[in-house]
């Protein structure tokens, strides 16, 4: 089974985010970059599919050359090959533009299944997987917390508000991943894995190489024109006043009921 994983590099979730001087982007100088956690779950699922069915795992990513490090991380986990779409035209684009580039890269691969995170922890667009599926005219199954395949079909379990749904699709299909680290336990790269990753094939491509019209993919339909920080929350009141445990409980209930009016 040939699996393609769409992988985004994002800032670490413990990062402090600051707005850049242009007012519409964030300061990236001092950020630590990681594989988007939901995409890391997709890499783990891809490797499990490969272990069961054979075939290969290809990582498709986009962005500047720093993204190579994240593709190598996925290769150190066990992915076989990589494609980085590094084209300045995508910088000013939107999710649909990126999806056009990713869909074109998938078409070149002859993939049986495409896996990716349900969202990225930076801009939380939550668009990539379903958009790529639509552009390829493939079905998609979103927010998997488990995945199984017999080689012809793929089955996932999906969490929705107040319940769980089991979905199935014939292949080819796109599957997006939800869940958490506890659900997927993505494997760590082994030392031999890290050594091998350095030699695995990684191609850098431009939109033109993929037959994508940069004027269409690179033109944003929607863009972020300004950023703002949340209103800072100041530390509130510590319930103390020399009270004992029971006294603090009484005081907190009173404050929530009478002052905050939330209970």
């Amino acid at each position: 089974m040939n699996v393609a994983v769409l992988l985004k590099q994002t800032p670490d979730t413990e990062s402090v985010i600051r707005i850049a001087s242009d007012g519409k982007s964030v300061v990236t100088d001092d950020l630590k970059w990681i594989v988007n956690p939901y995409d890391e779950f997709a890499v783990e699922a891809a490797l499990r599919l490969k272990e069961k069915h054979g075939g290969s795992v290809t990582i498709i990513s986009w962005g500047p050359q720093r993204v190579v490090e994240s593709i190598r991380t996925a290769m150190a986990m066990g992915a076989d090959t990589g494609v980085l779409i590094d084209d300045p035209a995508l910088e000013g684009s939107d999710s649909l533009g990126v999806a056009m580039a990713l869909a074109a890269a998938v078409k070149e691969l002859n993939a049986d299944i495409v896996l990716c995170g349900s969202r990225a922890v930076d801009y939380d667009m939550a668009q990539r997987g379903p958009m790529v599926a639509e552009l390829l005219d493939w079905p998609h199954l979103a927010l998997a917390v488990s995945i199984a395949s017999d080689g012809q079909n793929v089955t996932i379990e999906r969490s929705v508000e107040g319940g769980k749904v089991v979905l199935e699709s014939s292949l080819p299909a796109v599957v997006t991943f939800g869940g958490s680290h506890a659900v997927w336990s993505p494997r760590y790269a082994s030392l031999p894995g890290i050594m091998k990753a350095k030699k695995k094939p990684l191609a850098t491509k431009k939109l033109a190489d993929l037959g994508v019209d940069a004027a269409v993919a690179g033109t944003a339909r929607v863009r972020m024109t300004s950023l703002e920080m949340p209103v800072p929350r100041s530390a509130g009141k510590v319930i103390d006043g020399g009270l004992d445990t029971a006294g603090k409980a009484v005081e907190l209930v009173r404050a929530l009921h009478e002052e905050a009016k939330v209970i």
């Binding site: 707005i19 922890v121 801009y123 939380d124 972020m224």
Partner: peptide, 24 residues
């Protein structure tokens, strides 16, 4: 039309605007 949305899970907010002719 402009729309405000959280990014970085609410560490920051972004205002979105649409290009001429694009459907929001």
């Amino acid at each position: 039309i402009k729309a405000k949305r959280p990014i970085f899970a609410g560490k920051c907010f972004g205002w979105c605007e649409w290009a001429e002719g694009a459907l929001p």
